[in-house]
Design a protein around this nucleic acid. Structure first.
Lengths: 343, 343
DNA sequence: GTGAAAGCGCTAACAG
DNA sequence: CTGTTAGCGCTTTCAC
């Protein structure tokens, strides 16, 4: 079987404790001894047993990544992939491993308890969407270190996110500033029980105010972040004759495109469209979709970085990190015909 | 801190061993005792410590999912998301957790050793692409149970995959059977050091044989599974005047679309196109892309199911499971103009 | 600086 | 059927 500390100790002619000290970077080891032991560890390809370490020391060098799958199908866009990639890359670089929990509702309760109580991880990153996510609540009621990717409506937690309000506002302001002038800006919102859905609607409303436009209820309708949801939302919107629409996700924008086409109207001439997310499809659409790009990968690395800090110095009071998002101007907003040949 | 077996034992008025037996479904416990203990466990929300269990029993109820990131950017399509989803769902259902390793080349060696030697997992699912993947080789040289998602060229391993050869052949045969008759079928292959890239080329060649067509080297060129790779590959192909092209990935088909358009030709009139993967973009393209759909999620669940069998009965000799893929006929092959309105 | 010894929480013989 | 006992491999006082 696998080598143990004891084996390495025997080979190096020192005690188990010394080997342990070397591995854990304890100062109190003679330089020469350290060298010798390190060499032998290297040469024997020794890997300390995680379980034993956990048991003895209470740490695992493993973090959890929890992704609730409740809202919409997060798997239709690369958000999830990029996030995992970011989290994983940062963990690799810091010699941590990642335990992945996709929190399907049916298993959620069990999972939460497992995460918190069975000692598999030193801390967790949660990518939460719901405004009042039970996972987040359980976590913050526990002593498990965690950082939230997203925003909590009331609690001051460790979190990293973009500013959805501001990003949505920027998108809408752009739509309202474009030539030709738009008078009737509509929005297909995300579910209002999600933080992002909620915030993006606020951004829309702020833009309206900024331009002194009324907030006509017929020009706001709720979608579910999915393409089909966008399609039917757009159908509900059409009778109100919008000349521009802000969709709170690219998937919904794709659905909106179809509904607009089906009704015989043209994008962007009759209706300008802006989305949110910058999924791969966005640039492929006809016309290419103007949208907000999120630094998803960076959100993942940032969250891990923060989490490891929290784990290592128990001190820290909650920090909120806000990353910058970017408006990608393509052709669907009508102000950039040159981008028709968008690569 | 968290409760321990000992605590539960004390509360229930039995010994630690009895509680352990109850938890592990040992038969030799009086029904009444079992009930009582289970109630208390439930009521106290007790979670046994994984690390201690691992240490004492040598099992963790954790499996690893290893995804090499070497070839192409696996994160541009939802393959990876769906796979993880499948793996995770099956693990949830069986009360396993999943440890995720994205094997970036730089960390690969360390990771392999960690996976095999530090006792974090009971077994691993590897999604491998390279023909001769070092991870797969290390794993099969170790005693760590694992199942491969993909195919190994020579070794008889536990694996689940689709039949890439047959799927590619089906796609090409379809292209050659469509009206109008195509005479010059080309292919943009995947990297020939990947199993899928290799197999899909074989399928192409078999289709050619089936139709008695020559295998003109000017009509075969290698891509890298990416969109840009598809674009330049198609440019290399165009001088040979193909009237149909089989792209070994949808991403490459997207690139091919662009190259074909740039040269002033029309799809499918001048050149019919078939892809592979059925990514989300496929149905959104103009014309919608005919392609091969893989049961990716099912590959994930199947792999976990198999792995857990292997872990639990050490017996089993290697099994290879082949799942069915499906040709999705849209408009890019030219035989199904009605599907222009593809939803 | 280094070693000896005492656990961390659990499982698995071994008794009874 | 149930309790007692001996570790699993590591970290961490506490001596020296």
């Amino acid at each position: 079987m696998a080598l143990t500390l004891e084996d390495i100790a025997r080979i190096s002619g020192v005690s188990r404790s010394t080997v342990s000290r070397v591995i854990n970077g304890d100062e109190r080891v003679r330089e020469e001894t350290r060298r010798r032991v390190l060499d032998i560890i290297e040469q024997q390809n020794f890997q300390p047993n995680i379980a034993a370490r956990r048991l003895a020391a209470g740490r695992t060098n493993v973090i959890g990544l929890v992704v609730p799958t409740r809202v919409g199908n997060i798997f239709n866009d690369p958000y999830f992939s990029r996030l995992i990639q970011g989290v994983s890359a940062e963990c690799n670089a810091r010699e941590f491993s990642v335990m992945l929990w996709l929190a399907e509702p049916e298993y959620e309760r069990r999972m939460i308890h497992q995460i918190i109580h069975n000692g598999m991880v030193d801390g967790v990153v949660v990518s939460s969407t719901l405004v009042d996510d039970p996972i987040v609540n359980s976590l913050s009621a526990s002593s498990m270190p965690f950082v939230l990717i997203g925003r909590h409506p009331t609690l001051k937690l460790n979190s990293v996110d973009i500013d959805n309000i501001q990003a949505a506002q920027k998108a809408c302001v752009h739509l309202l500033s474009c030539r030709p002038q738009r008078q009737r800006l509509a929005t297909i919102t995300g579910p209002q029980n999600t933080m992002a859905g909620h915030d993006r609607l606020i951004g829309f409303q702020l833009a309206l105010q900024e331009f002194g436009l009324p907030d006509d209820p017929d020009l706001t309708t709720e979608g579910d972040f999915s393409e089909f949801g966008g399609y039917s939302a757009m159908q509900r919107l059409l009778p109100a004759r919008p000349d521009a629409v802000f969709a709170a996700s690219d998937n919904m924008a794709v659905g909106a495109y179809r509904a607009i086409r089906d009704s015989g109207l043209k994008i962007p001439q009759d209706i300008a469209v802006v989305g949110f997310d910058d999924i791969a499809v966005a640039a492929q659409l006809d016309p290419p979709l103007t949208t907000i790009h999120q630094p998803v990968r960076h959100m993942g690395t940032g969250a891990v970085e923060m989490l490891i800090q929290v784990i290592q110095h128990t001190e820290t009071q909650p920090r909120q990190i806000t990353l910058r998002s970017e408006l990608i101007i393509r052709a669907s907003c009508g102000c950039n015909p040159s981008s028709k040949a968008d690569k």
